[in-house]
Write a protein that binds this DNA or RNA. Structure first.
Lengths: 190, 190
DNA sequence: CGGTTAAGGTGACCTACATCACATCTTAGG
DNA sequence: CCTAAGATGTGATGTAGGTCACCTTAACCG
């Protein structure tokens, strides 16, 4: 399926745009291809776009002073990724974004998003919906973090994204769950 | 300061509404007064409104099977609170909301929010901004949870809301930080 | 004003997970 | 096809924070 159709299907589920409106909306995106390992946003740099994943898998992550990595999000097809704080506040990125696999993404600049949001009310509404969905997901993850142990959270993650099991190395899964790779390994072995 | 002015100042910082538009916007809210300890939303019930805090302090929380409480948010003046997942998806609340102190809030129903969002583009934009702010705050908290120990997170919380130190009992602070009250107590005593 | 309940502190002990060290095994490039 | 780097498993040991038990002090209410 072509990138345009992927986005169109996604939008159609949550907003009502005419074909012309969608064409205009879509004209503000730029299709980009990245290779496995390529960095899209890096900590400390300026961020001016957000990314809608068509194919492949990205990760948004943070590396602390001791060089330990924490993964905030695995971005699979139909997900959005960026450093939204830096993007909206025009500050430097506090997190990075890179490619776990080769990936195809649609890039939308901050300026273009604000432009189409102000031009088309339904688009503004669509982005409000999307952001709300992200907020709710983030709150759920926080709650699960406080309430559940590693094993539960690991199985919860695999239930939600079964593809991750084969796609992503275990050390990255551990960095998402907030535990060491050794502990994750010991959940089912030893 | 009256409730209307509190909301007006808050909105003015992040959206451009004419006085008439604001009056109309405001007419969709209902002022409510609650006593300390009163429950606004309880786990398992239907949610149909969100709340903007004028004065006092609320908490949104979750109680698990072992009756352990986790606090998702302390809602201080100028903050919004609800169970947003239940509110948007018309499902039953998975979290509760109650009053730590006597509180004055502006109540906005889901139906009214959607109504004014669709009627006034600037209002839709305002709510997109607000939701984005909540999302960013939630991601930051998650990251801090993974990256920092209890002492750091406690000091971070008190830096952000110094009022909490005297306003809220330590067992609630502990439930927000995700540790036992004993551990929190031992940070500075013993 | 007296009694009940909430808030807070602290000792003893337990457990989940971290860290370090090292041993395979797999895989992508040259 | 060979080799270095990445991915994974596992033992030994350390530690932050949990749990339980009990005590003191403060606050609220009939």
């Amino acid at each position: 399926m072509k990138a345009k159709e992927v986005l169109k299907d996604y939008v159609a589920k949550n907003a009502t745009l005419t074909d012309e409106q969608f064409e205009y909306f879509f004209s503000h995106f730029e299709l980009q291809n990245f290779k496995k390992g390529q960095v899209i946003i890096s900590q400390g740099s300026i961020v001016d776009s957000e990314y809608f994943v068509i194919s492949g898998c990205l990760k948004s992550f943070f590396i602390n002073e001791e060089l330990k990595m924490f993964i905030l999000q695995f971005a699979m097809p139909n997900w959005w990724a960026s450093d939204f704080e830096a993007l909206y506040n025009h500050t430097k990125a506090s997190t990075s974004l890179d490619c776990i696999t080769d990936a195809e993404v649609l890039c939308l600049s901050n300026a273009n998003r604000e432009k189409i949001c102000s031009e088309i009310h339904a688009v503004e509404s669509f982005f409000r919906w999307r952001t709300n969905k992200g907020y709710v997901a983030s709150q759920k993850r926080l709650l699960s973090f406080m309430n559940n142990n590693v094993k539960f959270r690991y199985e919860e993650l695999l239930n939600l994204y079964p593809q991750l099991y084969n796609l992503v190395p275990k050390n990255l899964i551990a960095a998402y769950l907030g535990v060491s790779r050794e502990t994750l390994s010991r959940l089912y072995h030893t």
